[in-house]
Design a protein around this nucleic acid. Structure first.
Lengths: 146, 146
DNA sequence: AATCCAATTGAGAATTTTTTTCAATTGTAA
DNA sequence: TTACAATTGAAAAAAATTCTCAATTGGATT
């Protein structure tokens, strides 16, 4: 069942890559799959070692390059934490915002963006032409808040 | 006039440091002053070289340590950009959110937080106990939008 | 003003992270 | 199948960050 889902997603991603002029490589699929199957955000080296379980000879540089590509394509985002922003998570939708549990590190997605609605108003008010925004919530998930 | 302002702020900061059990050192004052006097966000090495204009023998490690301290004290924040988050800017108020001009790098502060108001509602809606949030705007400032 | 002590610093080494280079490999369009 | 540009692996290089430790210093106490 999980396999089936994976295949299905692979097919979708393949089209997605091609439509944007990128090749669909096993390395890219693996990084994406690792992130999709992790409820928690993952650091570069965590991603690297998990990808290596499937593709043992993937180099670290490839992980860097792949994450850059996937981020550019809007498939993954950096998670910004107190001590920097070196972790990644998938985003299933445009303009969803990650809610990160500081206890278990799981990432949930908040789908309605409260900023979008007021973005124009903010621009008018401030004279600043807002192009994008970065919004992320930190807190405790249902399980962790006890 | 600029001097006077600086002196005034120094006095305030001194109290601020002492109240939290930190020493008020020339290095800390210099980093803070450099950031306060820069309309743009600054990278670690930019901060380092500007601080060196006043205190020529400050080491890079001190800049790292100082920024960590100032961030902990809520006096400065990291600016998160497309390519990472390695720049800093002062924040004049709690819960102001930076609006960063992608063209001139200047940072303006948006003082009303649209999230605060809805934070409780979001928590109720999602079951996620939101503790903090990170919000930042990217766009073009009045001067740069032409 | 002098003393003392813990906090802080400077200098450089060590470590970690990220980028670059380049030959070999590999998707995929034709 | 073939050809070619994109991608990769491996290792080196560069950059960023942290660590160590002796020396210094801010400021509380006298």
């Amino acid at each position: 069942m999980k396999e089936k889902q994976f295949k299905h997603k692979q097919a979708w991603v393949k089209t997605f890559f091609h439509a944007r002029g990128f090749k669909c490589t096993p390395q890219r699929l693996a990084v994406l799959s690792v992130l999709k199957n992790s409820p928690k955000h993952l650091s570069i080296s965590e991603i690297h070692s998990r990808v290596r379980e499937f593709l043992p000879k993937v180099g670290l540089a490839t992980i860097y390059r792949t994450l850059e590509t996937l981020e550019e394509l809007g498939l993954v985002v950096k998670v910004h934490l107190e001590d920097g922003c070196h972790s990644y998570t998938v985003v299933s939708r445009e303009h969803g915002h990650p809610m990160v549990c500081v206890r278990c590190n799981r990432v949930f997605e908040f789908r309605e963006c409260p900023i979008d609605r007021m973005s124009k108003r903010l621009s008018r008010k401030t004279g600043f032409a807002i192009e994008t925004h970065f919004l992320q919530f930190l807190g405790k998930c249902q399980d962790c808040k006890r």
